[in-house]
Design a protein around this nucleic acid. Structure first.
Lengths: 124, 124
DNA sequence: TCGTCGTTTCGTTAAGTAACGAAATATAGG
DNA sequence: CCTATATTTCGTTACTTAACGAAACGACGA
């Protein structure tokens, strides 16, 4: 209860996690979509998502075999809401962030997922 | 140049550094005043201040043998200014932060400093 | 110029973090 | 039930971080 805010800032202290949050401002994503865009392993992405969820920044809904991750925009914590607002308004001058924002709208979950657990591209 | 924001969030990911920033919203402080309030060693406090300064959150002015640390309120970075605003508006419900805010107005640099390098109380 | 005192730097140690592959869970469909 | 698939958990490894004391630095004042 006491110093949760430290965990929020720690959650934000990683480029991959900032990228995840910025992508989630565009739309909900499942783990394997994020994995595909970030080029990280399943377990690594899952860890990042756990950290963001434990910090109170993310929520998730199960939809069949997928888990849809989304921003916790309606958090009861004013601090969380302020932080999300800050992130929403920042980093748009970053080339990687801009590329992600574009990519995230072109990703089709049904093409990308479905090949075991993989880090390489689906075309291979 | 690319991902400085990660260093900003890392700088905020420590309770002592949040306490320092919140105290600096009250007034400028020298290193030994901060050391006294946080009960940490010289070198640890100096490290914290370096991290905050490198992140762009702090500036300092030399005044004789003292170095006065202050918030970098006039940073040219909108992100830094937004972050400082966020911190200013947060954490006031934290008991430690509230105690610090009170203490910082009672601290007299000339009583507290001046006994070599020390972590214990000045009354001893 | 010689201490003194505020601050910084150095070297070390203990603890925390990010990454991965492999194994374990859980859920839909045949 | 059995298999495929999406996600999580486990165990390991390399790296980072926070803390300290000791030593160095730098600016005043006797």
């Amino acid at each position: 209860m006491k110093r949760d805010y430290v965990n929020v800032f720690k959650a934000l202290s990683d480029p991959s996690r900032i990228r995840i949050i910025k992508m989630l401002f565009e739309r909900e994503l499942c783990m394997c979509e994020i994995r595909e865009i970030l080029h990280l392993s399943n377990s690594t992405v899952s860890q990042h998502l756990t950290i963001l969820r434990n910090a109170g920044l993310l929520a998730d809904d199960k939809e069949g075999r997928w888990v849809n991750f989304r921003l916790n925009r309606r958090s009861e914590s004013p601090f969380i809401r302020s932080v999300l607002k800050l992130v929403k308004e920042s980093f748009d001058d970053d080339a990687v962030i801009r590329a992600d924002t574009r990519t995230v709208h072109q990703v089709d979950r049904n093409r990308i997922c479905g090949i075991r657990t993989r880090t390489t591209k689906p075309s291979e």
